[in-house]
C-alpha cells in the first residue's frame, strides 16, 4: 500500500474507532466517513503536568494494617514473575517456577503468583514445571523486545509459543511504525497476532518509554484495545523509563474510556521498574481510584516484575510479625 493511502486508511480507522459503533455508513455517492460524534473513547489528548500531579497525589494515599496486608497479598496474586535474560536456562526457570508456586516456603498462606513470564525457548519447561499449579505461563513474542522483524515472522513466533503451551502472550508493538504515523501497520499486526493467539490471552506491550508523550501512550493504548488486546502493558523492561505511575494512570484512563463506551473489559500490566512493596501499593491505589474494585483482580491487573516479589514478601512478614526483615531470609529465586 502506498504510504499516503496507508496513512489515510490508518487515520480513518483510528478516528472511526470513536464513532464506528454508532455512525451509519454515509449514503451519498462519493462521500466518506467522518467521526462526527463526541463519544468515548476520544483519541483526545493528555496534559502531562496534570496527569503527573494526579499520580503524585494518589501516591500519597496512606493505607495501613489490614488493608495493607490484603493489598500485599493481592500484589503477589497479580504478579507476573519475570525472567528475560539472554543467560536464562531451564534450571533458572525451573527455580523461578518453584518460587512462583510457593513464594514464601515459610508462610504457606502466601498465595501463588499469577504467572511466570519467559522467553519462547523456555515456555515448554516452565509449562511442565507449573502443571497443575494454577500458575500461568506467559511468553514474550513478536521479536521481543524491539519488534524489529516482519509481521509474518512475528505471527509464526506467536503460533509456536501457543503450541508450546503459553497461556498468555506478551507481544510488543511496532514502535517504528507507530512513531512514523503508520498506525494501520501497528493495528493490523496486533489483529493478526490476536488471531494467532487463539485461546491464549494477549498482552500488548506499548514500550511507553519509547513513545515520548502521554498523547502517544493514550493513542497506542486505544489502538491496541481496538485491535483486540486483552491487556495493555507498559514496557518490556529493557528500556528506561519502564512503568511509571503516571503512564499507568494514563493507560488506565484509556481502559476506562473503552469500557465506558464499548463495554469491553481490558486488563492492565505495568512492567519494569516496580521494585518495592510501597510502589506496588501506589499502583493499586491508582487502579482503585481510576477503575474501582472491579478491576482489582489478577484477571485484570498484573505486575510485570522480578525483584518486587521478595520485597512484598518481606513486607507481608513484617506486617504479620511487626519485625523488620532482611533479604537473607527470602530465597533469591
Amino acid at each position: 500500500m502506498a504510504r499516503e493511502q496507508e496513512m489515510a486508511a490508518s487515520a480513518t480507522r483510528l478516528d472511526s474507532m470513536a464513532a464506528a459503533s454508532t455512525l451509519p455508513t454515509p449514503s451519498f455517492p462519493g462521500g466518506f466517513e467522518l467521526p462526527l460524534a463526541f463519544r468515548l473513547p476520544r483519541i483526545g489528548s493528555v496534559d502531562a503536568v496534570a496527569l503527573e500531579a494526579r499520580a503524585a497525589e494518589l501516591a500519597k494515599r496512606s493505607i495501613k494494617k489490614d488493608s495493607k496486608l490484603a493489598a500485599l497479598e493481592l500484589a503477589v496474586r497479580m504478579m507476573d514473575l519475570t525472567t528475560l535474560e539472554g543467560a536464562d536456562t531451564p534450571g533458572k526457570v525451573s527455580a523461578l517456577c518453584s518460587k512462583a508456586i510457593r513464594p514464601d516456603p515459610v508462610d504457606r498462606t502466601v498465595p501463588s503468583v499469577a504467572a511466570v513470564c519467559v522467553y519462547p525457548n523456555l515456555v515448554a519447561g516452565a509449562k511442565a514445571r507449573l502443571a497443575g499449579s494454577g500458575v500461568k505461563v506467559a511468553s514474550v513474542a513478536t521479536a521481543f523486545p524491539s519488534g524489529q522483524t516482519s509481521t509474518a515472522l512475528k505471527v509464526a513466533e506467536v503460533r509456536e509459543v501457543v503450541v508450546l503451551g503459553a497461556d498468555e502472550v506478551d507481544m510488543v508493538i511496532d514502535r517504528g511504525a507507530f512513531l512514523s504515523g503508520r498506525y494501520s501497520k501497528v493495528y493490523d499486526e496486533i489483529c493478526q497476532v490476536k488471531e494467532a493467539c487463539g485461546e491464549a490471552h494477549l498482552k500488548v506491550i506499548l514500550e511507553t518509554g519509547e513513545l515520548g508523550t502521554y498523547d502517544n501512550v493514550r493513542r497506542a493504548s486505544l489502538l491496541a484495545m481496538a485491535a483486540g488486546a486483552d491487556f495493555v502493558k507498559t514496557s518490556t523492561g529493557k528500556v528506561s523509563p519502564a512503568a511509571t505511575l503516571p503512564v499507568t494512570l494514563c493507560m488506565l484512563e484509556a481502559v476506562r474510556d473503552v469500557h465506558d463506551e464499548t463495554g469491553r473489559v481490558v486488563g492492565m500490566k505495568p512492567a519494569g521498574g516496580i521494585r518495592t512493596a510501597k510502589q506496588a501499593i501506589q499502583y493499586l491505589c491508582v487502579l482503585h481510584e481510576t477503575l474501582g474494585t472491579q478491576w482489582m483482580t489478577p484477571d485484570l491487573f498484573r505486575f510485570g516484575a522480578s525483584s518486587l516479589l521478595n520485597d512484598v514478601l518481606m513486607q507481608i512478614r513484617k506486617q504479620k510479625t511487626g519485625v523488620y526483615q532482611s533479604l537473607d531470609y527470602f530465597t533469591s529465586d
Binding site: S62, S67, V265, Q294
Partner: peptide
Amino acid sequence: MTDVRQRTSPLEWEYAPAP
C-alpha cells in the same frame, strides 16, 4: 461481552484511617 462482575472476585479495598 463478559460482564466484568462475573469474571472477577473484587477485593474490598478500604483505606484504613491514617490520622
